[in-house]
Design a protein around this nucleic acid. Structure first.
Length: 320
RNA sequence: GCGUAGGUGGCAGAGCGGUCAAUUGCAAUAGACUGUAAAUCUAUCGCCCCAUGGGCUACGGGGGUUCAAAUCCCUCCCUACGCA
């Protein structure tokens, strides 16, 4: 019985790891074994119509397992952020638990997972996207120094810890400050609702690189460029695509003619995806995030490890 | 064969007598991260050392001018374009 009670925390599984490490299929496998449902923790797969470019799981690959938080936002008119994702994911967890299924968070966006698992609090921004973009454009005109100075006036604590060379963060902090005044200190709330088991998937560099490359080629064959072109035809600006990064950013550049050949495009993407993998690894390596220490890492190229993971989950569940 | 423009660090590409181990971009490596996170930002990036300093080898090869050369001269090799 997994139903929430006041006494017992509920179990939530997290499957994380760098891109192309095989998270999605493992999550499905585990969901089938443990009667689970999957919640995607991917900052790009939340958008409708962004399929091949995000490596989104297909209906066939889901094997009947219910997936949450895919296709919940319109990339043209909406901007999904951590706060929204956190709220939605918690709702999904509750829903899954309510019919006695096991919630399995699966994804590569460490920032999102960290916010959920640490249960960081984020007040409602309460500003619509057009207003926000207008403010961003306005603040973009200012220098880092000016932004920093304004931030000190609003929220000294945040100013002291912020990376004062990172303009985007400064702008966001100033906007938050203008709306909310001092931003409450972020701290880990003692999470009394859920108990998490975090499974990390890894692969040796050479194997991961090869997988990334092969997957890239496959996706080109599946019509990734056409998908991006189609999105653009339906109103998704190249500017916005560049903001999405990776596949969308560089295919947009290709369609604009800034990247000349498909060969060049593949090469650039291959590098950029690898750089992304390294950023993901850096995130999970960060010792300041206490929850990182609890991640149980498994090499996904060793067949027995799937059984080990299964055992790990079974043992974890036996405590509830 | 003649003419012209070039040959610079993994790549692209600045520098054109000293302040150059050499601007910058990319790639590479490490790191940060609380509201766009696939984004954004930072650091390192010839070799060696008794390392906020010192030594060595470097700007196609060789030679020369100069106190001093990636930068000037000679010569050889190579590349691109033009003319034969």
């Amino acid at each position: 019985m997994l139903l929430a009670t006041n006494m017992i925390k509920n179990p939530v599984i997290v499957i994380l790891g760098p891109t192309a490490s095989g998270k999605s299929s493992l999550a499905v496998e585990m969901a089938l074994k443990f009667n689970g449902e999957i919640i995607s923790a991917d900052s790009r797969q939340v958008y409708k119509g962004m399929e091949i470019g995000t490596g989104k799981i297909t209906t066939a690959e889901m094997k009947g397992v219910k997936h949450h938080l895919l296709d919940i936002a319109n990339p043209v008119s909406e901007r999904l952020t951590v706060a929204k994702w956190k709220t939605e994911s918690e709702e999904a967890i509750e829903e899954i638990l309510s019919h006695d299924h096991l919630p399995i968070i699966c994804g590569g966006t460490g920032f999102y997972i960290s916010n959920l698992v640490n249960d960081f609090s984020l007040p409602d921004l309460n500003i619509n996207i057009d207003e926000q973009i207008k403010l961003e454009k306005e603040l973009e005109q200012k220098s880092e120094e000016e932004l920093f100075t304004e931030l000190i006036g609003i929220d000294e604590r945040r100013a002291n810890e912020i990376d004062r060379k990172n303009k985007r963060r400064l702008i966001k902090a100033v906007i938050l400050g203008r709306i909310h005044g001092k931003i409450p200190e972020v701290k880990k709330v003692a999470n009394d609702k859920y108990k998490y088991l975090q499974i990390g998937l890894t692969l040796p560099d050479e194997i991961l690189k090869e997988r990334i490359y092969k997957r890239l080629i496959t996706r080109f064959k599946e019509g990734m460029v056409a998908e991006v072109r189609g999105l653009h035809d339906r109103g998704l600006s190249f500017e916005r695509m560049e903001e999405f990064g990776l596949e969308y950013k560089y295919i947009a550049k290709f369609l604009k003619g800034e990247i000349k050949t498909e060969k060049e495009l593949v090469e650039i993407l291959n590098n950029k995806i690898w750089q992304y993998v390294r950023r993901q690894r850096t995130w999970w390596r960060n010792p300041k995030d206490e929850m990182n220490k609890d991640i149980k890492w498994f090499r996904h190229d060793i067949a027995e490890n799937v059984l080990k993971i299964e055992g790990e989950i079974a043992r974890f569940l036996s405590d509830f």
